[in-house]
Design a protein around this nucleic acid. Structure first.
Length: 465
RNA sequence: GGCGACGUACCCAAGUGGUUAAGGGGGAGGUCUGCAAAACCUCUAUUCGGCGGUUCGAUCCCGCCCGUCGCCUCCA
């Protein structure tokens, strides 16, 4: 089987054929670091992470680049409001962003280029556009892309430039445009804004140009997959294509991967609607980070996904179920021969898991395969048909699939010595059928955040989250 | 107005032109168990927004209608 992905440009699901055999290059539109990102933002990043993880699981070498937009109108405005420098504000929220990525189990991209550190690359691209007649300079020193010079404009979003509805607002930096639909490549200098002295004059970059410049700097052109939220299709990605292809004459990206919205209250989660939740807020409500991750990846990435207390609760329960199984397998002790049918079960699970994810990362059936396995393994634990070695094989198998899912608990979790003493004390009490002491110690441990369960394999503990 | 997505049980959410319509959560009953928890078993959509059409047969294909959401403007 080969991996198939939906490509927005083609409007269809296609086989993923690496431009370079065995190597896949991916660029993801990252955060604008002017405030805390919300979990809707992270849904898209989690989908991109899932893509990267699955490709690696499948044996591909993946180079993943995600930009950090550390200069733009919103950052400047916010920094001014808070009375700090643009650099201070941006680095503060960049750190928070990285921390949130770790929390959700999103792998760190291989490269996270900052816009402000790639001004020369952007300038070079803009120079090519000017030379090719695709861009023009206005009186205030701004430079715009001339949409009329690029007949392909609108292909990704399936928009006819002639039919574009023109916005009501006219911003200061848009004065002087030849056509209202043209977009800024470079913004002329303003006294109270950061600016750079460059070969194309003093100023600062527009938004779209950074992604064109930084993606191809690190991944070349064309590269395999460009990911982002569905709302970036237009105009952001359309503009990236226009810039990159007009400047070089080469195809920009082979496959466009767009993630659907996270919805809260039946609507897109968005700052403007106010229906947002940050990672910190979700965790503060007592939801584990692994449950949050599962909630974000539990549906197919292109469909709208309902988010809220109910989805978080469901994800928490599902994670607990997985934890309970792993705990039971780890504690499992019995003296009997290997279960001859276990390899078949694991093989069938892997086949179903991979078939689902090969099909445009179809998570629902992939998770169904995992939870079918959970039930079947619990049955075999109850029936005592596994050998102790089988239990170890099952754990290793689940952890192998978890390279993609990243929802399983940390592998080696050792109890603190003083808590282990309490647990040992309780085991001794139970051997002597001292139920009162047993119950008391269970409560004491619970107060320390350790939930103890008694099984025929002895005591089993897990951390309350 | 233009373009697009979607409407499956109490909630979330897969899926297929005809076999038992996944899985998770929740609920009800049961088994096991010193208790608790976990786990397991049974039940919880004769039905897939509505109306027509194509077909031997449609939830799945086509048309219309209703409803929801999104993009066209910063936006994951």
């Amino acid at each position: 089987m080969t991996i198939h992905l939906f490509d927005t440009m083609a409007g269809a699901t296609r086989e993923l054929v690496p431009l370079e055999p065995g190597h896949i290059r991916i660029y993801t539109c990252g955060p604008t670091v002017y405030g805390p990102a919300h979990v809707g933002n992270f849904r898209t990043l989690a989908a991109s992470d899932l893509l990267v993880r699955y490709l690696r699981y499948r044996g591909y070498h993946v180079t993943w680049v995600m930009n950090v937009t550390d200069i733009d109108d919103k950052i400047i405005k916010r920094a001014r409001e808070e009375g700090i420098s643009v650099g201070e504000l941006a680095s503060h929220y960049e750190l928070q962003f990285l921390s949130d990525l770790d929390t959700i189990g999103i792998a760190r991209p291989d490269v996270m280029p900052r816009a402000t550190e790639h001004i020369p690359q952007m300038v070079e691209l803009i120079q090519k556009l000017l030379a090719g007649g695709h861009a023009y300079v206005t009186d205030d020193g701004s430079i715009f892309f001339r949409i009329s010079s690029w007949p392909e404009y609108g292909r990704l979003a399936r928009i006819d430039p002639e039919g574009m509805r023109v916005g009501e607002r006219v911003q200061a930096d848009e004065y002087g445009k030849d056509d209202v639909r043209d977009f800024a490549l470079w913004k002329g200098p303003s006294a109270d804004e950061p600016s750079w002295d460059t070969a194309i004059g003093r100023g600062r970059p527009g938004w779209h140009i950074e992604c064109s410049a930084m993606s191809t700097t690190y991944l070349g052109q064309p590269f395999d997959i460009h990911t982002g939220g569905i709302d970036l299709v237009f105009p952001h990605h359309e503009d990236e294509i226009a810039q990159s292809e007009a400047a070089t004459g080469k195809t920009f990206v082979a496959c466009w991967f767009h993630c659907g919205f996270l919805q809260m209250g039946g609507q897109k989660m968005a700052k403007s609607l106010g229906n947002i939740a940050s990672v910190g807020e979700v965790l503060a409500r007592g939801v584990s980070s692994r449950a949050l991750r599962l909630a974000l990846i539990s549906a197919h990435y292109r469909t709208p996904l309902a988010f809220g207390d109910e989805s978080l609760q469901a994800a928490s329960s599902a994670v607990d179920r997985l934890d309970a199984l792993l705990g039971a397998l780890a504690a499992y002790r019995t003296d009997r021969p290997d279960d001859a049918s276990l390899p078949l079960l694991l093989g069938a699970t892997r086949a179903a898991f991979e078939a689902a994810l090969d099909d445009d990362l179809n998570m629902s059936p992939a998770l169904a395969a995992v939870f079918d396995l959970v039930r079947e393994l619990n049955r075999r634990i109850d029936a005592r048909t596994l050998s102790a070695a089988d239990a170890g094989r099952a754990i290793a198998f689940i952890r192998d699939l978890d390279r993609v899912l990243a929802i399983a608990p940390a592998a080696e979790d050792r109890l603190e010595p003083e808590l282990q003493l309490l647990l040992d004390e309780r085991a001794a009490a139970r051997t002597g059928s001292d139920w009162a002491a047993s119950d008391r110690l269970r409560i004491v441990l619970a107060e320390r955040g350790i939930l103890v369960e008694d099984t025929r394999d002895g005591q089993r503990w897990r951390r309350a989250e």
